[in-house]
């Protein structure tokens, strides 16, 4: 893939170059942005603006050593800025939230990690049924807690509790997998 990008760069066919960016990185960048801003449209707009900015500087693209890490870094910074501005203007004095987001941003691994995703899927499959159902509706179907509560006719508190339970069980299970792999 790197070679593909490099080939086009020497030909200076920028439109084709950016089409490749959309093909390979757009969706994954959007998901990355959404983990910060929690709004699909906003996430898409941030990514769009980052790519547009890159377009404006396309002549200096050869100075960027890793396109992929540049894109993720730019999206991350734009999101953090967005969060800060949003909070300032809403007069929402939740500095703790911004601080947590900043810490968290180092842990949101933007790149695909097949191995980890496999572990996660296995661990989810092993969850108790109701717990798994709630977690899948939340993470896979993207439903809000309120929607899950209506769909399954359980209280919002129960939804929250099930998600907490799922997360804590995922953590234990995945750590156990990793441990057993290390010992193999």
């Amino acid at each position: 893939m790197k070679k593909k990008f490099a080939d086009i760069q020497t030909n200076q066919d920028w439109e084709q170059y950016f089409e490749l960016i959309y093909e390979h990185y757009h969706a994954s960048l959007c998901v990355f942005a959404k983990s910060f801003v929690n709004d699909i449209d906003e996430a898409e707009e941030i990514v769009q603006n980052v790519i547009l900015k890159l377009w404006e500087q396309k002549e200096s693209l050869c100075e960027i050593i890793s396109l992929k890490s540049y894109l993720y870094r730019a999206v991350r910074n734009t999101c953090l800025n967005y969060i800060k501005h949003q909070k300032i203007v809403l007069q929402y004095k939740d500095a703790a939230w911004i601080k947590l987001k900043e810490i968290e941003s180092d842990f949101i691994n933007p790149y695909q990690n097949t191995e980890l995703e496999e572990h996660i899927n296995n661990a989810i499959a092993e969850l108790p049924e109701r717990c798994r159902e709630v977690f899948e509706l939340s993470r896979f179907d993207g439903l809000k807690n309120k929607e899950i509560s209506a769909k399954l006719s359980i209280s919002i508190k129960a939804v929250e509790a099930n998600i907490t339970r799922a997360l804590s069980s995922l953590r234990k299970k995945i750590e156990a997998y990793k441990h057993s792999e290390q010992n193999m």
Partner: peptide, 10 residues
Amino acid sequence: PICRYWYASG
């Protein structure tokens, strides 16, 4: 890890 699993799962 909890953050990581949360985002990776979806």
